[in-house]
Amino acid sequence: MLELRNVTKMYPSGPVALKEVSITVTEGEFVFVVGPSGAGKTTLTKLLMCEERPTSGSIIINNFDVNKLRPKEVPLLRRSMGVVFQDFRLMPTWTVEENVAFAMVVVEVAPRHIRRRVAEVLSLVGLTNKRNQLPGQLSGGEQQRVALARAIVNQPSLVLADEPTGNLDPETSWGIVKLLLDINATGTTMLMVTHANQIVDSLRKRVIALDAGRVARDEEGGVYHG
């Protein structure tokens, strides 16, 4: 499902962001990626999204070999995953419904399917009655739910979440994490980058710790500080 072998990433300017990283994630797993600031966690998600290319090493995601991917195929790879960011990345002038539907419009799904599926995911994240509101009228947690709904609306097999609770208070964060667990329970692979040590420690999922671009630790049922 997801396999990195000896992946090194050097930015043209700046230090080596990832050094000889090898990670394998099987289908349906829930993985936390932790580590200090600058450890290379965001770089890792960018490589998986194909926003950056590895300097060396191979990456295989959902049967796409990133090194052999032609520019035309990048959108196809991205359609097979959903992404969530710390800053939500919603269109402020569109309603909740439109923000979610957009991910389907962009991949040219027929309008009648869009309506049905959008209603489905909005009820899943508990925002059915806010569907006609603008993001600015919602709380941070609600905005992140919209982003999450958008990430899963096309039924990806992998969800990448880069500090999805970074801007949220602990209680709201738990709400988001519960949703991620629900989504994971339906078989979707989940990769969550986080600094929320309490969440990591209480869930006891697989934890991959990066430090200065290297995998410092990779253990099942792990905790935030090894």
Binding site: E51, P71, K72, P75, R89, A103, V106, V107
Partner: peptide, 16 residues
């Protein structure tokens, strides 16, 4: 640019 960024990560083709 914000909308374009979203289009990119949800998998819009260049032509779209």
């Amino acid at each position: 640019r914000r909308e374009i960024g979203i289009m990119r990560f949800v998998g819009a083709t260049d032509w779209f």
